[in-house]
Simulated scan of single mutants.
Amino acid sequence: MTITEINPIGNFDSWDEARLKEIKDEKFSLDIGKILFENKELKLWQIELKPFERLPFRHHKNNYSCISFTDGLALSRNINGQIILLRLQKGDHFYRECAEIEMITDFENVGEDPIKIAIVEELVEAKHKAKNRL
């Protein structure tokens, strides 16, 4: 996976009005895609996006792992202004820790081919951390 920053944090000059309105309205989802499996420790999500389909802004509260089942080109906007371009290759994977930071992003297939991704969201870690904060 190649990640290229195409807009820096704090710069909203290139953002369209529809995306800025979504942020202003603060109606963020916790859903990542379609749930394939869930227990008290994890959720297995699947994202399938046709060309130019987009997932709206969603709030990431738990750490997660991601694997791409297809090649593809995607755009992700963060409500902090940053926009990144992701060049996915089949088999690409990564792990992201976000249980202790606010991360609200969207995800859009900007390529000509469908994108298929699986995400394993860790539920235990977030609950454990929240419990230890009390």
Rank of each mutant, 00 (worst) to 15 (best):
M1K: 03
I6K: 07
I9L: 11
F12D: 04
F12M: 09
S14L: 12
E17Y: 09
K21G: 08
K21M: 11
I23M: 12
D25S: 12
E26P: 08
E26H: 15
K27P: 09
K27W: 09
F28I: 06
F28A: 07
F28M: 09
S29V: 05
S29R: 11
S29K: 11
G33Q: 07
L36M: 08
E38Q: 10
E38L: 03
L42V: 15
K43G: 03
I47Q: 01
L49M: 06
F57C: 09
R58K: 13
H59T: 13
H59W: 13
H59S: 11
N63H: 05
Y64N: 03
S68N: 10
D71V: 01
L73N: 04
L73V: 05
S76L: 07
N78E: 03
I79F: 01
N80W: 05
I84D: 05
R87N: 14
L88G: 01
K90L: 10
K90E: 11
E97M: 09
C98Q: 05
M103R: 15
F107C: 08
F107D: 02
E108P: 05
E108M: 15
N109S: 13
V110L: 11
D113S: 05
P114G: 04
I115R: 00
I115M: 03
K116Y: 04
A118N: 10
I119Y: 00
K129D: 10
A130Y: 10
